[in-house]
């Protein structure tokens, strides 16, 4: 489902004497449907960078990143948008939403975008929010007023609202208590069971051991600084 081949990336900082910082060299990775691959490596090794490259959030200088039939590296913006709407989900560590929009609508949005009816979308949003222990009295409020852990869980609810065939999870269990961590892990297991291909970053080793079928150490792709 996801196939990363000989991928390289560098950042050029034009306003700082055009310094070139190579961050990724010849990365390779394949994820099959129903499989979860964990990215490991020290902080700064490029785990999130690789994930963002797969999502099309960062440009890739060389190589090929296939998600389904689409090569992200050469795809047109509107092809990537369609892919993100239908096929590829991404749960980041940060919640980014229009201020003052109720939580229920924030969670429903990805489903409305693929044409699910408003009632059905709200129904599923309620189910997810309940599962993730967001108290019902908060549903009509904007998540921007919530605590860090609550925002994180709203973000997860939003990320799992539509059943994407491929998913990228950037520390979905960070800063969660035991019960919520358990819920998130079971959501991931459900997604795998329905055939989703998942790339995840987990700092929590027990969580990684439980949901990941394989691990890839990203630091092997970090260019050696001379």
């Amino acid at each position: 489902m996801i196939n990363i081949k000989n991928v390289s990336k560098n950042f050029t900082l034009h306003n700082q004497n055009s310094v070139e910082i190579p961050v990724m060299e010849n990365a390779n990775l394949t994820v099959k449907p129903g499989e979860c691959v964990g990215l490991t490596g020290a902080s700064g090794a490029g785990k999130s960078t690789l994930m963002r490259m797969v999502y099309g959030n960062y440009l890739t200088q060389a190589g090929r990143i296939m998600v389904g039939d689409l090569d992200i590296v050469t795809a047109l913006p509107r092809q990537i948008l369609e892919l993100r709407r239908e096929t590829l989900g991404y749960v980041s560590q940060f919640l980014r939403v229009v201020p003052r929009v109720p939580t229920l609508d924030v969670v429903s949005e990805p489903m409305l975008a693929v044409g699910v009816s408003r009632d059905a979308a709200h129904e599923r949003a309620r189910e997810l929010l309940t599962k993730l222990r967001i108290p019902e009295r908060l549903w009509q409020l904007s998540p921007l007023t919530f605590s860090g852990g609550e925002q994180q869980r709203v973000n997860i609810a939003r990320g799992f609202a539509h059943e994407y065939p491929a998913m990228l999870l950037d520390e979905p269990t960070a800063s969660l208590d035991v019960a919520n961590r358990e819920t998130v892990l079971s959501l991931i297991e459900d997604a795998k069971a329905r055939g989703a291909a998942i790339i995840g970053i987990f700092h929590d080793e027990a969580a990684r051991a439980r949901v990941c079928d394989r691990e890839i150490d990203v630091s092997t792709y970090t260019p050696k600084v001379v």
Binding site: H14, N15, G56, N57, Y58, L59, P77
Partner: peptide, 19 residues
């Protein structure tokens, strides 16, 4: 510069966009 909004804002390529 042109591209996906989040890509241009998170990984700008041109010096002016970076600024």
């Amino acid at each position: 510069e042109t591209g996906l909004t989040d890509q241009v804002l998170d990984d700008p390529q041109h010096g002016y966009t970076q600024l």
